[in-house]
Design a binder for these strands. Structure first.
Lengths: 144, 144
DNA sequence: CTGATTGCAAAACGTTTGCACGTTG
DNA sequence: CAACGTGCAAACGTTTTGCAATCAG
């Protein structure tokens, strides 16, 4: 669990400047349960910072990724970011296609996967997509 | 298993023109065991067709995808294409990071994954990345 | 005060489009 | 010969870069 304070402290300890914009960015991700695209971030931040530029958003997303605060995932629709999960417990995710909310899955299929002897496994990806309870209700509610 | 003849026949039956370039493209994928990026395809085709343009490569990749001959997958490094697997048996892949070769995995983790009652699953992705025997050998061979 | 951070403009990159010409069926 | 395919140039959306002005420590 990353709080705004933890993120800010981590930035500061690395000699990075803690600007208003970065604090807001930290808060945005600390409060978001799921994935955000650079555009999502730009739009949210733009409400507070008029004249905000896309390149600053990208720069700060990259900074926070290198800091280990954010993790980046590539989806069909493009790149998205979320708070980095606590690293020690390896796990996967259920991802809501509507709101981007993620649930952890503790089950890892890798342990049961038979791999040819001569194939050296480096990494794997297991993601489940669908609709969370809330979004599912909203969807059926709007259907006449 | 898709042969060049099958692909050509499928194109022709859909009213598409069978040009030399498309035949070469079909042959390229019929002979390739793994994923190819648009750039890979462009470079290969460029050897035969001087003055080839990227847009034609993209157009034909899209045509063959819509035809169901190719399937498109999004990787960290970008979009790649390969021959569409026989649809009837659901499976996943081992993918070689060096040469793009893919092996099928018949095991599907989805059947064992516990999902909250209120989450409706739509699709899932399970991919294992590493190095195949051939690439592994080449890599260790070049290490002094 | 000094170096990090920002906005601006412009470039880079992968992909798509409109158009006129050439080719396939 | 008609419709489809091609190359060219140019547009597009996303991401990155160089620069000078500004800000945090």
């Amino acid at each position: 669990m990353h709080t705004v304070e933890e993120i800010v402290a981590r930035m500061s300890s690395q000699g990075l400047r803690v600007t208003d914009q970065r604090k807001t960015l930290a808060k945005l991700f600390a409060d978001s349960p799921g994935y955000l695209s650079p555009k999502d971030v730009y739009e949210f931040m733009g409400k507070t910072y008029t004249g905000l530029s896309f390149d600053t958003v990208y720069r700060n997303l990259r900074v926070m990724e290198e800091l280990g605060v954010l993790e980046q995932v590539v989806f069909e629709e493009g790149v998205k970011f979320k708070l980095h999960c606590r690293e020690h417990d390896h796990h996967h995710h259920l991802i809501c296609l509507q709101c981007g909310l993620t649930y952890p899955i503790t089950f890892c299929p890798m342990v049961q996967t038979a791999v040819p002897d001569d194939f050296r496994v480096v990494k794997h990806k297991f993601e489940v997509f669908g609709y969370c309870g809330t979004c599912e209700q909203e969807e059926t509610a709007t259907q006449p």
